[in-house]
């Protein structure tokens, strides 16, 4: 049974989450329609079929090495089974994408890990302009709704307006915030945050960091320092570090993930702006090359639009659409 059928049987009973289908509408329109059209156009697996398939995958930012590998595998399969139709090949392809994602790591719990009696710390990292601060607001909203006591630390002391931006969110969400002076050492803000989180018996401390290009060694080292300061202050706490990546990012996303993972261990990735027309194929490339799992994806501007990443639902919404009969 192909994955599509598997998904169909699965979601035949349970409707996929509403905002997945809606949020990914634009992405899906291009991707799944193009795949369906491809199968219609080329009933047999002709060289043209493979060429167009390659175009579709590349233009979805799936990444060239993964794309070429998927196509090579598919070519092999078509040699083994010369009667493979293009519709079946499409299903095979999605199977392969699914398998290649899953086999890169153990199954993942998306929700943050919590431990009785100590605050969990979540570090938010990323290059400039990916949506770190907005994602922090959305995560704070999510965990506040789950009844957690939340503290934010405004660790971006560099960008103009960054502290104000987080402060506005804190007051809108009615959560507490620790602020440093402009241009203060971010590690000192993290220290203040960690201390306040312990003393105030918070459940979750979310630390904002300034956007940084992954090639700037001194700024990347700063992330390690922030982490060390927190680990020293809260030795018992689970520390999560999320790398935030913009869905419109191309192959540099892989470089970003590699560099940030090297600078300090990542426990997850947040993909933002998935409600645009970008297909977020970078999700697959990053998993393929780094193994880091996507934990949350941003599907819109509303607070509840940051949702848990679910591979089934993602592939389903992206590839199959909501016309599953």
């Amino acid at each position: 049974m192909g994955l599509i059928n598997f998904l169909k049987s699965k979601f035949g009973k349970k409707k996929p989450e509403e905002n997945y289908v809606k949020g990914l509408a634009k992405s899906r329109a291009a991707f799944s329609d193009r795949l369906a059209l491809l199968a219609k156009k080329h009933a047999k697996l002709t060289p043209e079929y493979f060429e167009e398939l390659e175009t579709i995958l590349i233009e979805s930012d799936v990444g060239v090495s993964l794309t070429l590998r998927l196509i090579d595998e598919l070519l092999e399969k078509s040699k083994e089974n010369p009667n493979l139709s293009s519709q079946e090949a499409n299903d095979e392809l999605i199977d392969m994408m699914f398998v290649s994602y899953v086999e890169k790591g153990e199954s993942i719990v998306n929700e943050l890990s919590f431990k009785e009696g100590v605050p969990t710390v979540l570090l938010m990292e990323g290059v400039n302009g990916v949506g770190k601060t907005t994602s922090i607001a959305k995560l704070a909203y999510r965990y506040k709704k789950q009844g957690k006591k939340i503290l934010l630390a405004a660790g971006d002391t560099f960008r103009a307006g960054a502290v104000e931006q987080l402060s506005i969110w804190a007051s809108r969400l009615e959560v507490d915030i620790v602020k440093g002076k402009p241009n203060a050492d971010p590690a000192s803000v993290a220290f203040d945050g960690a201390k306040a989180a312990r003393e105030g018996h918070y459940d979750l401390l979310i630390v904002d960091t300034a956007g940084r290009q992954q090639t700037k060694a001194n700024l990347m080292n700063e992330l390690g320092k922030i982490r060390r300061v927190i680990a020293r202050e809260l030795p018992e706490s689970p520390i999560e570090a999320f790398l935030v990546i913009d869905a419109t990012t191309g192959q540099n996303g892989v470089s970003q993930a590699k560099a940030f993972a090297e600078a300090s261990p990542l426990t997850g990735i947040v993909i933002t702006k998935m409600d645009g027309t970008s297909k977020g194929g970078i999700i697959l490339s990053i998993r393929d090359e780094i193994g880091a799992p996507v934990r949350f994806i941003g599907l819109g501007e509303k607070m509840e639009d940051l949702v848990e990443f679910d591979l089934d639902e993602y592939l389903h919404a992206l590839l199959v659409g909501d016309d599953n009969g």
Partner: peptide, 12 residues
């Protein structure tokens, strides 16, 4: 345009 933009940038 962000230097790291992907394939969709042209449509943007």
């Amino acid at each position: 345009i962000d230097a790291s933009a992907g394939q969709d940038a042209v449509n943007v």
